[in-house]
Design a binder for these strands. Sequence first.
DNA 1: GATAATTTGTGACCTATATCACATCAATGC
DNA 2: GCATTGATGTGATATAGGTCACAAATTATC
Lengths: 187, 187
Amino acid sequence: MEEILRQQIEKIVPLTDDEFRLVLSHFSVGNYKKHQYIVQQENPVPYVHFVVKGLLKSFYIDKSGKSYILQFAMEDWWITDNQGFYNNQNATLNIDCLEDAQTYYITLDNREKLCAELQKMEFFFLQKMTAGNIALQNRILSLMSKNSEERYIQFIQLYPDLIHRIPKTLIASYLGISRETLSRLSH
Amino acid sequence: MEEILRQQIEKIVPLTDDEFRLVLSHFSVGNYKKHQYIVQQENPVPYVHFVVKGLLKSFYIDKSGKSYILQFAMEDWWITDNQGFYNNQNATLNIDCLEDAQTYYITLDNREKLCAELQKMEFFFLQKMTAGNIALQNRILSLMSKNSEERYIQFIQLYPDLIHRIPKTLIASYLGISRETLSRLSH
DNA sequence: GATAATTTGTGACCTATATCACATCAATGC
DNA sequence: GCATTGATGTGATATAGGTCACAAATTATC
C-alpha cells in the first residue's frame, strides 16, 4: 500500500528510503466503508486524502437539493474539499465512498512541517497543484464548448477505468447533464 | 510599478529589500498594445505574466471558430497558458490585450532558479496555485449548478471592477452564454 | 471630425437538454 | 431468499438558451 504513495511521489521527486519514512510518518491510514462520508458540508475539513484503495466522490448539494459531482478519486488520486482544507473553513462539499476505501491522510499542519523538513515535498505539492489547475481549466473549457455527447466521449477517453466502476447516473452528474440525457446518448 | 508585485508577494510571504531585489532580478518588464497577442495557439509559451497595468484575456478557439474566454487578468493578476507554460508545450490558448498593458514576466527556468535561491517563493507560488484551484472548482460548480442569470449576478459580485472595463459581449463569452442572452438579462 | 469598427438591443424561430412519469432490471441488506 | 433500494431506458412535454437577422448606439482610428 505504501508503495503506491511512494511511486506517486517519485514520479516527480526521487526519495531515499529514509526520506520516504519521514514522509510516511506525517500521514495516517484510514479505512472507510461504502457510503461512509469523510467530509460533510458545514463541517471542518481536517485532511487531504491520498487514495490507496477504493473509490470516492466529492459533490456539492445546492439549496434545491440537486447534487453535482466535482471529482471522483480512485487509487493514486488525492481528494479533499480544497476550500475548506486550505482556508480552514467548513466544507462546502461532501465526500463519500462509492466503494470501501483506504487512504493515507495528512493534516495541513503536518503537510507544512513535512515541507519544512523535506523541501522537495513542497515542489511535489506544487507540481500536483499545477497539474490539477490544468485539468480544471480543461474541464471548464469542455463545459463551455462541448455538448453532452462530446463531453461524455471525452470522459471515456480520459477515464476509461472509471466507466465500469461508476453508475451512469453519477457520470451524468459529473458531466453536468441529466441521467436521462446521458441514457439517450449511450448508444 | 514594482510595488504592486512586492505587495502581491508580501500578502503571503514577507520579504527584505534584498530579497525583493533578488525576486525582481528574475523578471523582465513587457509593454503591450491593445489587441496585441502575448500568447498564440500552436506557439510556445515562454512566460507567466504578472500584470501591473492594463487588462488581458485568455481564450480558446474551437474548430468551428467560436471563442471561449477562460480568464481575464487586470492589475495584480497572473496570466499564462498553464498547460503550455508548465509542460513546455505549444499553447492551446490565446492571450491578448483588451487595453494597453505592462507586465512583469518570468520564464519557467527563472522561476525554478528563484525558488531554489529563495525557498519562500516556492511557498508563495504554491499558495497562489492553491487559490487558483479553489476558484476554478467554484467556477465549475457555478457552470453546472447555476443558470445564465445567476452566473451573471455572481460575476458582478466577484469582479465588480471588471464590469465597467469589459464589453458585455466578452463577459457573455466568459460566462458560457451567448451575447444575446446576456443582453436580454441585463435588466 | 468623418469613417469604420465594435457593441448592444430586440424580434422570430429553433433545438438541445431538462423534467416528469413509468416500467424494468440489477444489486444489496437482513 | 425476499424485500427494498438503486440503476437504466424511454416516451411525452416544457423551456432555457442558441442562432440568425437587422437596426441603433457607441467607440476607435487616421
